[in-house]
Design a binder for these strands. Structure first.
Lengths: 343, 343
DNA sequence: TTCAAAATTCAAAACGTTTTAAATCTCATT
DNA sequence: AATGAGATTTAAAACGTTTTGAATTTTGAA
């Protein structure tokens, strides 16, 4: 493999000039630059990244630690995330190193990777409230970006959606349609996003002068949501609308509505948040699902770029991005039924 | 971050001695070694891998390029592979770098990674016949190990199962049970393993003096196998037994058998090869599936170790492993029915 | 023609480790 | 006390790059 020295010997130039010529420094003569580039091409020169990294102090690698949950099998989502991240990182000449979290202590794999001393930073996802990984990385001063947040006023770079607004938009839509009894089918409160959704829901309900007594949390999969919805629909003052934290949860809710002999949207309306995972497509629902939409895959490249910017010294304040999810009204929402429903 | 120089300054020793002490060289005085280790501990010394790699010429990273097929969603398998590989590599202080193959030319991502000049080797899987990636890596003299083979007499390290024997064992079992009309439901012949299975099937059928005219290839998913089996079962001289290349294919075959109003194993026997993927479990079949079994996840750690050995100069001949799959007889196979079946 | 300024190039240091070859130390033998 | 073998340590080179500070060449004006 040709080195800078080979090129410099070939052309009778110093290594420094060759380096600068190839790296586009302004102070090198155009003729020299041309010669150097030609020779580099001819000799098949490829910079030795290891040497570059030794001198720049960067490893050129960032870590992603994937948590393997025994119950869930990886869906296409994971590959989308992977594709997005590697694409974004490749554009900045950085590699993605993968490790596997096998359950134990959440920070253990991060500690291991840090001690190996080969990573410039991390990409974190699926934060829980006051995530211990976040605390650990902050303490060790290891750069990272978070997809989502783990607290209300985070001192680190993140890329998230406005989860309060997600819930509020859903409530506003349903409120304007005349619904008074609106239920929330939320995820696990250990996730910060679930907290935010709940808060947004409560505030919006308050603005509409509605009582927010129909709240179910800790729903993980569709069948949880199914059970929760069934129970809520059995109440004397049952909901006429559901706000769901995800499309899989909405799927469970829709099943419950059907099984109760109710129609959607005539009897009950449903709004869900849609991360646009390939498995449960909102448009595949019957009727198609009204959603707040924010494709997960859209987050990957920004995340990669933000991490690189962070490493290059961009101040944290400039790396805190909150997106607004788009509200897409489809067939699963309609005007509130004229009177209460009894089953 | 403490360096060797810091330790050497601290103790008034030379950097060389410190390095040797920490790396367990025999020529350093025990007292010195103790002092060095204590100081390293105290100062929190971690070797700078980049520097190590610059001098040793190794990057300490190997690549895995995952091919994303738009149709299939990743099953748990991928995570098992990932877990196995990272565990095996971590034990040898090596990281796994992931890249994504987005469809284009099969060798393109390998070329990209090679030109980046940061990988010591590759792990390849799912080879096709005369795999272009293999040809490319051989030509570039880039070390790799292959899970499976892409040709009959491979000049590279591999870890595979004896696919001819897989098919032969199935045929032998069925032959001894009195079956004369045995069908093969095979995968795509572009995969070398499918070739080998076919060859083993044909040879074994020949040994039993049976005509191997019931062969279906190019079955990718269960529904393909369903159609193929349906067609074969409609023939005048229909099969009384099926040999299937995988459990998902066996699932399709079983559906076809049921839909034809036939019983398993009374009317038709089924044997499949079982890579022990979590999605389609052989024991979940009714009756449980007779299989040749060879868990995919068992291959991961050996593969990682073989690649490391390969990098360390172990001759290729010592790194060509062929395992025999275990034959597990369960309820899906029984004696051939007394007379032919007509539907 | 001369000289200062600008443009360009250079030599050398630095990054943190491993490894080679040489130097020093220790200690038993003469 | 001198010798020499063995044990231990050292200085320095090497890996391939970037970068600093100095040196050289070129340019343009006086």
């Amino acid at each position: 493999m040709a080195t800078l020295k080979d090129i410099s010997a070939e052309l009778g130039l110093s290594v420094a000039t060759v380096s600068r010529a190839l790296n586009g420094f302004p102070e090198v003569n155009q003729k020299t630059r041309d010669k150097v580039q030609e020779a580099a091409e001819r000799l098949g020169y490829r910079p030795n990244r290891v040497a570059q990294r030794l001198v720049t102090g960067r490893s050129g690698m960032v870590g992603l630690i994937v948590k393997i949950k025994p119950d869930m099998s990886a869906d296409q989502t994971f590959f989308e995330v992977l594709t997005g991240l590697t694409a974004g990182l490749a554009a900045r000449d950085t590699e993605l190193v993968l490790a596997v979290d096998q359950g134990e202590d959440a920070v253990a794999p991060y500690r291991r990777m840090i001690e190996k001393n080969i990573l410039d930073g991390f990409i974190l996802n699926e934060p829980v409230v006051d995530d211990p990984r976040v605390a650990f990385l902050l303490e060790r001063k290891m750069p990272f970006v978070l997809h989502g947040t783990d607290r209300d006023d985070p001192p680190y770079p993140f890329y998230r959606i406005d989860n309060q607004k997600v819930a509020a938009d859903a409530v506003d839509l349903l409120g304007h349609l005349g619904h008074r009894r609106i239920a929330l089918i939320n995820g696990r409160l250990r996730h910060h996003y679930a907290h935010e959704r709940l808060e947004g829901f409560l505030k919006a309900m308050g603005r509409h002068g509605l009582s927010a007594d129909l709240v179910s949390t800790e729903n993980v999969v569709g069948s949880d949501a199914y059970m929760s919805a069934l129970e809520l629909l059995g109440l004397p003052d049952a909901p006429t609308a559901f706000v769901c934290a995800s499309t899989p949860l909405a799927d469970g809710v829709c099943r419950a509505i059907r099984d109760k002999g109710l129609r959607m949207p005539e009897d009950v309306s449903v709004v869900a948040h849609d991360d646009a995972m390939p498995l449960t497509k909102a448009v595949k629902f019957d009727p198609a699902l009204t959603v707040t939409r924010s494709p997960l895959r859209d987050a990957c490249e920004p995340l990669a770029n933000m991490l690189m910017d962070h490493l290059n010294g961009t101040p944290t304040a400039d790396l805190q991005v909150t997106l607004t999810a788009e509200l897409i009204v489809r067939g699963s929402t309609g005007p509130a039924p004229k009177r209460g429903i009894t089953v």
